[in-house]
Amino acid sequence: MVINRSCIFRRWRTMSRCAVLGVLLLCGCGSGGRQSIDGTVTLDGQPLEKGSITFIPQAGTQGPTAGAEIVDGNYTISTAGGTFAGKFRVEITAARVSGTIEIEGKIYDKHEQFLPDRYNTASQLEAEVTAGEPNHFEFALNLD
């Protein structure tokens, strides 16, 4: 019986190419891991000067909570600190001075979270993060 060695070799080469391709594809799935997120937040039409934004995964969405500080209406979450793709509840908080308070004999400015509950503790804000596409979310908030 004659064994066609070159054919076996070709088959092995094809298989190894497939294996390499498979690994590359798996790597592709892996980079579908954490996603960067950015966007803007306005309050009554003006950029929110300072605040915090948090993306909390909802049931069925895997992985960590992510967030960033909002500065002059902009926020950016890097890939390393990002979320997985899925559905998120978004919480936005911001504080401002609302008077003074005395604690142990000292007078302090009283910083108060002033955004309505519907944007944070009872948030109705949602976002859907997708893999491999820019995740840019703009939130237009109103005090009333």
Binding site: S52, P64, A66, G67, E69, G81, T93, D109, H111
Partner: peptide, 25 residues
Amino acid sequence: YKNTPNSSAGDATWNNPGQEVECVD
């Protein structure tokens, strides 16, 4: 345990800009 370990979402503790700040980003 509100946020996951090493979350990119910042902690929120005593932070009174202009006076004592005890939580630095």
